[in-house]
Design a protein around this nucleic acid. Sequence first.
DNA 1: ACCTGAACACCGTTCAAGT
DNA 2: ACCTGAACACCGTTCAAGT
Lengths: 209, 209
Amino acid sequence: MPDRGPLNRDRIVAAAVALVDTDGVDALSMRTLAGRLGCAPMSLYNHVADKDELLTAMLEAIADEIEPPEPDREPLDAIRARAISTRDALARHPWAAELWQRSVPGPARTRLMEELLEMLARTDLSPRVAHHGFHAVNNHVLGYTLQELGMNMGDDPEKTARDFQDAIVADFPLMAAHIQQHLDGDTSRTFELVLDLILEGLARLDREG
Amino acid sequence: MPDRGPLNRDRIVAAAVALVDTDGVDALSMRTLAGRLGCAPMSLYNHVADKDELLTAMLEAIADEIEPPEPDREPLDAIRARAISTRDALARHPWAAELWQRSVPGPARTRLMEELLEMLARTDLSPRVAHHGFHAVNNHVLGYTLQELGMNMGDDPEKTARDFQDAIVADFPLMAAHIQQHLDGDTSRTFELVLDLILEGLARLDREG
DNA sequence: ACCTGAACACCGTTCAAGT
DNA sequence: ACCTGAACACCGTTCAAGT
């Protein structure tokens, strides 16, 4: 059931995101994408320079899903909300985190970074600590999301986890126990907890110079 | 100048790592790799099941480069040293961080995780905080490395950074200033600083329950 | 047991030709 | 300005045949 109507850049990017959301990034080819859109493969090249530019445009579309900062909020609170919104957007599109740092950021991704720097500037953190804070928050969001999505691979994440657990329990008991903690579900707030640890750590670092 | 001698799994993996270190992960094909090794493409399949297994084996080889924990060290110090050694290994192989979470970990990568959990167990952190610490440290190492390598793209990283800076300075002044801080080189210890922030934050989190 | 040529079913992209 | 078929130079992998 190919979509019809006039071809344009936005329709191409939206179709590509939809395709990759369901079938994975390896399933994206210019030919299958054209099939979904009901056009010839080469028609796509009237709207995107090449596949790389398409992927960059797809990441920009994901960046646009992330909630803008709420200007009336306490800056550290706003940073916290932004981090959570970013994680949510990356979780909705499990392929995006892996590619997030692959190409030079476009306007949407650059705006995200500018906004985080703005929020940090509105805190009373020193410029030096704010610089580190920028990286600390970004590293956490990206690193956590990659780890979470890496664990949730395949059609049945729980089965994947249990199979891995069974395979390693003899040689790596602590890791098997760690996985059990995840399976027991009492770790769902790790992202927020570590985020708070970082935000409080920044404030403390600043106080001590 | 193809290497000669009998083909085996280790030679294939080593040649693949060398190829990808210099030419990037997109340059890795079974055909070019076979060319480097002086064998037919299909000969590789006598030693690896497919390209995916080869990539997994390459990541295992990188994991084996990471220094084992020094058992006589203070646990938090040992964790710190391990994090730095991991970052160094990933920096030597700029393609590896992107793939790190892509497939189910093999024995070498699982051993790394087990060892981190062992070091955490040797601290006096509560099991709950140790669980979060595992993720906090791993997220930071992976997230930081990805960010650092993302910035150092292309043949001339400094030129890439300056070009990006020029392109965005009008719309995103804070981001341009942030890049300037990197170009000035006074941010080289961000990785260790944020790492220490996390480790101290864990100890504090524990004290407060 | 290990190797390999030919073949199959794909890719991204160039180019020239259409409207 | 936008579309597209044919073609080019690649892929990963199967299979049957070699030693």
